[in-house]
Amino acid sequence: MISTDICIIGAGPVGLFAVFEAGLLKMRCHLVDALPQVGGQLSEIYPKKPIYDIPGFPEVKAQELVDNLMKQIEPFKPTFSLGERVDGLERLADGSFRLTTSDDTIIEAKAVVIAGGLGCFEPRKPVLENLEQFEGKGVAYMVKDPEKFRNKRVVLAGGGDSALDWTIFLADVAERVTLVHRNETFRGAPDSAEKVFELAQAGKIDLVLSANLKALSGNGHLNAVSMTTKEEEITVETDYLIPLFGLSPKLGPIADWNLAIDKNAISVDTFDYSTNVPGIYAIGDINTYPGKLKLILSGFHEAALMAQSAFKHVYPDQKLSFKYTTVNGVPAF
């Protein structure tokens, strides 16, 4: 079990900066994010895009901003549970919280800050009749541990970079890799596409092009995937199917935590960005209030005010005195 002052759900730019603002007030933070890396949509969707509206940075690439934030919060030694989704949130009798993740990690915290952006990124799923039946029983949407596929037969589906990269990687790990793609060509990185064609020519992988997934079959566990090409329907016996069609954000379990929700965003009081549940705050793109602007800039401001208010949940007996970093520096843990 992890015990901390503040549990921050979402490790995007606003969640990361919240660690800094909390740290200045001597509050420790643990962050949970469904993605395997920090940075939220900045790292996941547009790492190389320049951002022009961060004060003091005429231009900064999204990933650079994330890297800088990680450096900025380093003195406050945040801890992370990455690649895990917070599924359960329970308020304990003493007013603190117990959070449970998709990997059964338990986190106890005196305050909770939801900085979940647009929600958790979840894999886009192909439309297949009995797909859900095989989830976790042969159908996987991400490769968390490649060793799981050692000496197994794997079908990958998709045409983007991740489909190409994992095909190349798993070619050396799995017993047999089949890549199914809807088109004749790949629009992912040309080097990766070339490598995939080379592997196919050398007979190391099977490439099924201009094909669409049609049906899954198996008895308890997946054992075959059917697909249609222009000419025929073929069935490939397999242990795993990994559909890689990108990620899409969903509000997810947050919707079930008795928080006031307005159009997929959490309603907050702009005094301190608190929700209707004492001790739970919502900052950044996930919250809403009159005049809300979904800007990183706004999220940073919200983080600062949130920390001032969260202090009374973490240190109920202490009086808060506001100090400037120019006067006090950054009092590292």
Partner: peptide, 14 residues
């Protein structure tokens, strides 16, 4: 344009 085609190509339901 290329950016649009690249992104469409990753979708399951085009």
């Amino acid at each position: 344009n290329d950016a649009e085609l690249d992104m469409i190509d990753t979708l399951p339901n085009i």
